[in-house]
Design a protein around this nucleic acid. Structure first.
Lengths: 238, 238
DNA sequence: TCGATTTTTGACGTACCGTCAATAATGGGG
DNA sequence: CCCCATTATTGACGGTACGTCAAAAATCGA
């Protein structure tokens, strides 16, 4: 089954090409800019052929999301395995999250469209399952690092706090910050010249609040994250 | 100009009614569930009349967003004036943010649609300006509390941190947490039984990280926020 | 009551989605 | 090399929704 016929390869290739074109259109004109007719035209195929690959427009969106989420999962995995103390590893995951939005900026659009349009019922369960699994995996990766930190004595969780609370906090912070910076074009005017830096400071502050050693006053996590980010971005598949 | 003719009042009333119907449809079926024809039918008017009020569908979305944002601004204002020490006031704003999502859950849909669809160019500059102003006001309210905290000696900002960094951190955390809890229906499965509680813990932790007095170990902010939330929700206009 | 003005209507033009019968390409066997 | 069964591709078509606008209806003042 590993060996594919020429035909199968061609089909797969064309599918990738469709997603590539769709991604460009999406970035250009948002959801309204995504149009089956136009994709077909740009591919120099007819609409019908596109529909051989994706049952409908929503499937294309989900497929784009899945591509991106698989990339994110692999980036997170790589980051979580970073050698060093637990807090360096969690910072590495933060750096991976930064690298991810830069590599796959379209993912934000897709995520928001998916969230807002209630398009789920039009899509196939298989693709939905892939998405859910990626999400769970990413959460598991991060909470693994948190558990390691507790086990290694770097982090003492306050009573009534679970490792998942920490994950949820970091996840929220990242998602919120990236959402804001992605879609608000006047942040500089309201005093946020560099959202990425501000996000890093917020993360550091929150983890310092938990007392996760080494504190940001004892270690230069900014330099660390810059290094990790470079490394991770360099090893992006394909 | 304060006195309006009967006609003017009727028009305004109908406009509100349109928005009310649109809100219901939106909550029911997302962006795809919003349909000018159906709104008209439910209003027992024809499409053309709806178009007298809103130049296009996007204007309805922006109008809904503006309604919600004005509500949020007033709730934030009320919260920021809460008597007590600065950290109680910032916690009160957090409570207001909680109350807001419960009062205006549709706002999240609208915000995501607006962010993802690049519908800006189809909407009137006036409505866009209202939105931008609300956003700026909310940021200003929160950063006012932060500045007060610094002035009153409750908060010592680390070097290179601006009050806006704190605002950005809280804003991100709230937006992210609310986005996740609004649109992910399996949070319990991954260990987050109560996102609202987790968000509060995250906020406390971050502010503790900044050393904003009184620390969450010295004051029961949960009870405080419950109280504020009840109070604020009770005074929602209309 | 009448005519001028405003409001409302819904048929129409346009755009896009997704389908499917018709057409073209492919490729294995004679 | 040709033939035909199978597979791939096409684009016309039906359906839905947006936004427009000329015509019809309602309103209002004289």
């Amino acid at each position: 089954m590993v060996v594919q016929t020429r035909k199968q390869r061609e089909i797969h290739e064309r599918e990738q090409k469709i997603l590539e074109v769709a991604r460009a259109h999406l970035l250009g004109g948002g959801y309204l800019g995504l149009n089956m007719e136009r994709i077909a035209a740009e591919m120099e195929y007819s609409k019908g052929t596109i529909y051989q690959h994706f049952r409908n427009k929503e499937e294309i969106l989900i497929a784009l999301a899945n591509q991106a989420l698989q990339l994110r999962t692999s980036m997170f995995n790589r980051a979580a395995l970073w050698p060093g103390r637990s807090r360096e590893r969690i910072a590495a995951v933060g750096a991976a999250a930064e690298a991810f939005v830069e590599t796959a900026p379209h993912y934000f659009l897709v995520e928001q469209i998916v969230r807002a349009s209630s398009i789920w019922e039009k899509t196939s369960p298989e693709r939905r399952e892939i998405m859910a699994r990626c999400e769970r995996q990413c959460v598991a990766i991060v909470s693994g690092v948190v558990r390691d930190a507790v086990a290694q004595g770097d982090l003492d969780l306050p009573e009534h706090h679970s490792p998942e609370d920490v994950v949820f906090g970091l996840w929220s912070l990242c998602l919120g910050a990236q959402t804001i910076s992605f879609s608000s074009d006047s942040l500089a005017e309201i005093g946020i010249p560099s959202p990425t830096q501000s996000l890093r400071r917020g993360q550091n502050q929150m983890l310092d609040g938990y007392g996760w050693r080494l504190l940001s006053t004892e270690f230069d996590y900014f330099a660390h994250m810059d290094r990790v980010k470079r490394e991770i971005a360099d090893h992006v598949p394909e």
